[in-house]
Simulated assay, not measured.
Amino acid sequence: MTLPELVQGELGEESPVARVHLGGDDELFVTATRTLVYRAEGLLSDESVEEYPHDAERVSVSESRRKAKVTLEYGLDGERTFSVPRGSLEEVLHPVLAGVLSAAGITDPGETVERTFRFSELTLVVTSARLVKHVGAAVWDEDYEEFRYDDVSDFDVEEGSHATTLVLATNGRQERFKAPSDRAREIEETLADALLDHYDVATLEEFRALSAEADGEDGDGGALDRADFGGGPDPLSAEPAEIDTDAGTRDDPLEDPPSDPGGAADGTTAGVGAAATEPPRRADDAEAGAAGEAAAAGDAFGDSGFEPAEPTDDLAEEVAALRETVDRQAERLERHNELIEQLIEELRRGR
Rank of each mutant, 00 (worst) to 15 (best):
G160P: 05
L204W: 04
E158A: 11
A227H: 11
A241F: 05
A291R: 15
E293P: 01
G302L: 12
T165W: 02
A290L: 12
D193Y: 01
G172S: 06
D284I: 11
D193M: 08
A297K: 09
G267E: 15
A296L: 08
R173P: 05
A265N: 08
P235G: 06
R226S: 13
A300E: 13
A179T: 11
A169P: 01
A179C: 09
D197Q: 12
R281P: 04
A294W: 07
E158W: 05
L196R: 15
A163C: 15
A296M: 03
E217C: 05
D251Y: 02
A212P: 00
D215R: 05
G172Y: 06
G230H: 06
I243M: 09
T170Y: 10
A241M: 11
E293V: 07
A274V: 12
R281I: 09
A192L: 13
G232W: 02
H198Q: 06
E159G: 04
G219Q: 02
N171L: 15
L224D: 03
P240Y: 03
G216Q: 11
L166H: 00
R250L: 09
T277P: 06
T203P: 08
F207E: 03
D218A: 10
D218H: 12
L196I: 08
R185Q: 13
E188M: 03
P180I: 06
F301G: 13
P258W: 03
A184L: 08
E159R: 11
E189V: 14
R173A: 13
A184V: 03
S211N: 03
P257W: 09
T164E: 01
S161D: 11
G289I: 13
A286E: 15
E189F: 01
G292F: 15
G292L: 13
T203D: 05
P257L: 14
A300M: 04
R185W: 04
K178S: 13
T164G: 02
F229T: 05
P180Y: 08
F207P: 01
A294H: 14
A192D: 05
N171H: 10
A214E: 11
L166R: 00
G273D: 13
A276T: 14
D228T: 03
S304P: 01
D182W: 14
